[in-house]
Nucleic acid binder design. Structure first.
Lengths: 140, 140
DNA sequence: TTCACTGCAAATCATTTGCAAGGCC
DNA sequence: GGCCTTGCAAATGATTTGCAGTGAA
């Protein structure tokens, strides 16, 4: 019994050869691969692997919380005419996007010697209004 | 002479009806729209507007630094098997995505009383290797 | 036997490219 | 005139969908 299999089972995901290989790839390659990169890497081991299965499996993983899809909006590019560093908060209920001020200097990581040009800070949750509304309706 | 026109000219972007409309839309709608949303909104005013022009113009804006494209990788979805909160840094030269540890609690905005469920940090710039390479080539 | 899983092929959706027409200097 | 800008149409590339075959419980 290998640990990746146990890990997936623990999240209610039935292990299959393909799923084990994809999760193992994700956990041993911290390169934030695309679906295509995973497909190319694994077809050498699993010659019958299809790209559909890679997409299906990644979606399954994200839905079950064992992987994340990096990006604010996975489908389209989104643009902003304000080029100053700032944070965006999106309310999961009303869908409003609120701009938040942040001090970017403050959260520069310590052991990093590169050059940071752009910073994005994106939060999801409930805005004050929706959170209050939700709490009030629970108390009645 | 309106201010959007001056603004674009200041960045070396020749103002045109389409460019002015797109920048004006970006600056007055802080909704982080997609190219498609911009197109749908502006075709009412400019009936001949084409989606190609919207894409061209947004690319021009990003290249000239008057707009930003939100998202770590505009082309593909990228996946991560690590679901703990952490930051992602993408190097603009080599394209690598690097994980960075940060203390997310520390950077929660002060005047915000909602409820935060998910936090994402994206940084873009030059990684240490590419930054050194660039500096070295400038010194020769 | 049933149902979940897989994978091919076709479809879809966002984005880019090729190219010709129009407009500004 | 020459170059920049625009916009149509076609191409591309990522992702999804339809559907039939397979295999495990």
């Amino acid at each position: 019994m290998n640990s990746t299999s146990q890990y997936l089972s623990g999240y209610g995901i039935r292990p299959s050869v393909q799923r084990l290989a994809i999760m193992h790839y994700l956990r041993s390659n911290r390169t934030h691969p695309t679906a295509d990169e995973i497909f190319d890497a694994l077809r050498k081991q699993i010659s019958t692997l299809s790209k559909t299965t890679v997409y299906n499996t990644l979606k399954l993983f994200v839905d079950h919380g064992v992987a994340i899809c990096i990006g604010i909006d996975e489908k389209n590019s989104r643009f902003d005419g304000c080029v100053e560093p700032h944070a965006h908060f999106r309310c999961k209920i009303c869908g409003r996007i609120i701009d938040l001020e942040i001090d970017t200097e403050q959260f520069l990581p310590k052991n990093f010697n590169g050059k940071i040009d752009e910073t994005y800070f994106f939060l999801k949750g409930l805005c004050e209004d929706c959170n209050n509304r939700k709490n009030n309706s629970l108390n009645t």
